[in-house]
Amino acid sequence: MDQIEIRAWVHRGVRGLIVLTLLGLLTMSLPALMTGTPALAVLGVNASPDQIAAFMASLNLDRPAPERLWEWLSNAAGGDLGASLVTGRSLTDELAARLPITIELLLLGQVVALALTLPVAMASAWRPGGLLDRIATVTAFVLLSVPTFVFGLLGIMLFSVMLGLLPATGWVPFGIDPIGHLRHLVLPVLTIGLAEAAVLVRVLRADLITTMREPYVLASRSRGMGTARLMITRVLRPSSLTTMTLVGLGFGALFGGSALIETVFAIPGMGRLAVTAIGARDFPVIEMIVIFSGIAVFLAALAVDILYTFVDPRTRRAHARS
């Protein structure tokens, strides 16, 4: 690493920490901004101002945001994320139970997306304007216009209600019933995968075609390299940067997106937790989710930046300027 590179990484890290701190402060000011509303949700609308103040004070919700953030962080460092106002459950337990579900869904969804994207985009870029390309392009464009929750519902209608092949909703832990677990996974994972693939195919196809016009590709071709080998060994790697960024951002948007999918399929993950918590104005839960979501975005962006430097070493320097 030379100096420019180090400067770029330091800049990125500092910016990330500032963003995360601001995000934490903003999150911790939520209860204060929403004066008393969390208390009303728990105490009922007839609570007196004194009761509300006492309630807010008992949970430290009335203290300034920096103080609350510091306290949250020191507790979190000791493995204590607080407890839900409504159920009283420890959020550490809640996280341990739900996060793996959301991550499993998302991971498998992205795997399906990539498994679809790579062959389809390469086949498309093989002969731009050919029959395969036209079918793929139009399909991706139409899929792009279907909101995910609609997509999920259509899947339920077709495979569960009409054909009766798959369970519509719910979740079975792998340990209890491996087959049932997989059967419950199929629809949500396909929904995530297809929706994601619709975005990725368009991008990867365009980038592949652009790269195919580079002189070095022509040079390899003139030395007798077949299109398939050329595509996989020479073209794919430099064409994958935008696709990688999108996959990374997809991981970062962990909770917002899962709220919809998990509601459609009644899956007890983080997204479902978020929706329930918001309905109950359960602030400790909302705070935890917003903070973890910020951390997920930060880590995903960092991972993409690191991957970039492996895929295209030139970006090590170029990135410093952007």
Binding site: A195, V199, L246
Partner: peptide, 21 residues
Amino acid sequence: MLTQEADTRPALSNSRSRVRT
């Protein structure tokens, strides 16, 4: 994630997919 809700990511792809293919 996903195309749905408020996926603002297609914007990123705009810059390159505007290369005429």
